[in-house]
Design a protein around this nucleic acid. Structure first.
Lengths: 226, 226
DNA sequence: CGCGGCTTTGATGTTCATCAAGTAAAGTGG
DNA sequence: CCACTTTACTTGATGAACATCAAAGCCGCG
């Protein structure tokens, strides 16, 4: 298992700098699990026993509002440590997580991570950095989206899918129109309306879930000034 | 200095569990600085060399938008570790900080904290918990405010000042109407309009900066359903 | 005293959510 | 595999919430 771990991205992201002994201690109890599209990975309220790492696929992190509506907090992409932020602040997950595509998740026992944390201060410092960065990203994202108008928000997430997730100007949306609304805080109807608008303006070509970005420059300026 | 430190809240909040030796190592190079109302404490871009702790007073943490407008991220109150979140993720502050009231800030050298972090894993674990909690709080706050309507947002921050900061239903607002707008994402005009509305409805009594909450129950239900 | 920033109120227009209604697609059970 | 049900998608009409613009009084400060 050690060799596999050393070469796995999980290692390079989170566990770099650990000794072979430490890595073995973790790896011996590491595991992985495949999920099918739309499977539930974690339910709000579940006990936090593992650190989870998305090896392959795409997840949505979401929670239920007071009024019963779902709100998507973030999209996890490959090589993300899922829910790293809450692992150290709560014994129970405050969010649910579901697979948007077929996914593979690696687990390492949290108790073992904590054990090593106590021995190895440098590891703790790296973790601190990563947790802080993750928090910064979420906070920045939330503020950026909140201050944009609807067209700007749609442009923003389209560019995110194209540039950050699929690295291609044509891709299949892994989210329904409704879910997109839940992600960027607007109604389903307006998501559709603005998609149509962008299609009429020749910015997008849309066929069901398949999106092709035709005028990226325009999309960028809508995102910036929206 | 050791005795002072042991009894200081800074200690109980962040440095509990450290040995006398460790605490001395930090305390020997701790310092404090008083600020007058409206003084700048930290400027966006400053190098992060210290962990700062607000002993007394009130601060605003803010940043400039792309369009030049200021946006208030959070209000720091006594016993808060100011900017704890960015200390471990960046070498430079991404936010500016200014004093809303006369304040006293304690500093501990970051390099010394990091040195102890390397020696003492338990300290790292506590820090991780605190950083995660701070992030959770900011994220929750942002989402909660964003989904409220304007009356709900005003109710929310009035209750925050009354219950969390001043612990009194009468208090002097430390923020201008404009700053309140920057804090909860609305225009100055609408802040004023809703203040007036609340006054007419007998919920508040307003005299310049001095606010008295007359009908707290009403305010709570506006905050909840807004 | 006069200037600039803060406060206040009113009028106007834009943006967005909501409601309604219909079509298309995707599960589901016989 | 087909009828049936549900869920997703789409467009239009309407109204509410909110920003913007305008104008005037107020206050502190050099």
């Amino acid at each position: 298992m050690l060799e596999t771990c050393r070469s796995c991205v999980f290692n390079s992201v989170l566990f770099e700098g650990l000794s072979d002994e430490e890595l073995n201690y973790l790896a011996g109890y590491a595991s992985f699990e495949p999920f099918r599209k739309s499977d539930t990975v974690i339910s709000q309220g579940d006990e936090v026993n593992f650190i989870s790492f998305l090896k392959q696929g795409l997840l949505k992190v979401f929670r239920k509002n007071d009024d019963g509506k779902e709100q998507i907090i973030s999209i996890a992409k490959p090589n993300d440590c899922v829910g790293l932020l809450t692992v150290f602040s709560d014994k129970h997950y405050q969010y649910s997580i579901a697979a948007l595509e077929d996914s593979i998740i690696y687990y390492v026992e949290l108790s073992r991570v904590k054990y090593i944390l106590l021995q190895n201060g440098a590891f703790g410092m790296r973790l601190l950095g990563r947790v802080s960065l993750a928090a910064d990203a979420i906070i920045n994202n939330a503020y950026n989206i909140a201050k944009k108008n609807l067209r700007g928000r749609i442009a923003f997430i389209l560019l995110e899918f194209a540039d950050e997730i699929y690295r291609n100007d044509q891709f299949d949306l892994p989210l329904s129109r409704k879910e997109i609304g839940e992600l960027i805080g607007m109604t389903t109807e307006n998501v559709i309306r603005i998609f149509s608008e962008f299609r009429h303006d020749g910015i997008l070509s849309i066929s069901g879930k398949t999106i092709t970005i035709l005028n990226k420059q325009m999309l960028h300026s809508i995102e910036k000034f929206g």
